[in-house]
Write a protein that binds this DNA or RNA. Sequence first.
DNA 1: ATCCTGTGCT
DNA 2: AGCACAGGAT
Length: 234
Amino acid sequence: MICGVLKIMLLGNFDAHKLLDKVGHCVNTHIFVTKLLEWADKATFRDFTYRHETDAFRKLCLSVLLQRARPPQVDEAYKRLFTFLPTIKDVTNAPKGQIAELIRPSGMHQIKAERIRKLAEIILNQYNGRVPQNKEELLELPGIGEYAADVVLAWAFNQDVTMIDTNVYRILKRVGLIKEEGEARTILERLIPEGYRRRFNLIFIEFGGLICKPIKPRCPNCTLRDICHYAKSH
DNA sequence: ATCCTGTGCT
DNA sequence: AGCACAGGAT
């Protein structure tokens, strides 16, 4: 059953009993959430410097850098970009080529450079340097889609928002909780109690990066192996 | 549906 | 060599 009070050290502590009381009645999802929490309790989360960033504009740029990129490479690009171009004005005035060169490690640097430069321009000129705090306006921004908008709302504006990335898709699909990607949001919002969306997103990302990896997942070491369709068929 | 795009892993 | 990556736009 539930092994005492689970604590997520990195993100602060919370009482898993309360948490699990709010989760739905389905046995599989119950086990799923419990096992993930137990794993997060023991695991050592990776520490990327960009995770400590709270500035809304930089988070906005980060969500662009993260597109189809690996976290370590994004961290490198992130440091380079804001070391050389610390302010929004700096980014706005920088030639696209310079931005591209700075963020090269994150991949797709030409596209991302264009997106970041336009972002800076719009935030500076149309929003007077303030990143909008609602999803509608965020989605209007170039290079900002569902995921990027949710990331900004969650981590820059402290909103309890469900974020869905490839890690979430992959984990939910393999375990067998969803068949198609469109089902992810519904399932997640039923699965994860309000107030814990951000924490769980980090857990999904870490679990997806360390255990349920896209290639060569570590199924033998995985706490979900007993309930996971993928683990049973491989 | 397909493109964008560099790098790390297998 | 080939696939995959904290996606988004056309």
